[in-house]
Design a binder for these strands. Structure first.
Lengths: 143, 143
DNA sequence: ATAGTATCGGATATTTTTATCCTTTAATAT
DNA sequence: ATATTAAAGGATAAAAATATCCGATACTAT
């Protein structure tokens, strides 16, 4: 479904969103420990998220990553889009280059509903929504 | 969503199912032309499908691949399972090793519905169903 | 029997994804 | 100013997925 890079991105972003706003600066080491991901690879992914302004970073001592106010309203859709592209939301399930209503692949119509279901869910699910489940111990970011 | 190997597998199986039963023996070359896939790679995938009895093959002149009666009732779910495994139907969307009702990842519940939607659709969609759309020119296997 | 044909299967190559290493850059603290 | 810290970024490595090549095997036809 999603690449590993994308899974790490989503879990990392949710983790940062669980930290109290204004006191949420957190380092790479802590993040990758919290989500059980390889540190250096996670760093690369966070760099992309920073470049795309989904996340902000500060260098040096007491540096780290943080997400403030508006950032916590980011929808999962956007993270997938930035890391994996939106192939999964718009691409053809069977790999046809030009799959459309006019030239549909074998499963085009059956998949339309599923893609819309997925896209809809991802577009309406924000980091702060997900962070709640982690905070109250209902959901988990690793193991 | 699906690997390229799996996409080729599904399109190839549908293509073979469009041929008139009893007169449906078709060679690798024709198949990979019909679905626009690399020949040698497609051969590897067809070999797996033959080993798993989703497809039968005959060597030598006038040889090729064919699917008879019961084989045309194969559901897409089974093809995905054989080629990609059922990670997509049962695995955790965020990569947790042990994601379950008791230890759910951040998106577990939201994804459950989507996975069930996908699995249900794939389990109730057969090759012969899909072949009809190709036969009457409504759907396409390439471009 | 022999030649020809088409899949099978092993080996290998290429590309993409995942992962690591190390130097540079920017910020902090002393 | 200097040393220290942490992210940024470039280079490289390892693993997995995709793709190709070629000899072996099995079948057909002559």
């Amino acid at each position: 479904m999603f690449s590993k890079a994308c899974k790490y991105a989503i879990n990392a972003m949710i983790y940062i969103s669980t930290l109290p706003e204004g006191n949420d600066r957190v380092g790479l080491k802590e993040i990758s420990k919290a989500i059980n991901s390889p540190e250096a690879f996670t760093a690369k992914i966070l760099q992309i998220l920073v470049r795309e302004n989904l996340l902000s970073s500060i260098k040096g001592p007491n540096g780290g990553f943080e997400i403030h106010e508006e950032g916590r309203k980011t929808h999962l859709y956007r993270i997938v889009q930035v890391i994996d592209g939106d192939q999964i939301f718009t691409g053809c399930a069977l790999g046809l280059e030009k799959c459309s209503e006019d030239h549909p692949c074998a499963v085009h119509n059956k998949f339309k509903a599923i893609r819309e279901h997925l896209a809809g869910m991802m577009m309406t699910t924000s980091l702060e929504d997900m962070a709640k489940g982690i905070q109250n111990g209902t959901n988990f970011l690793k193991i």
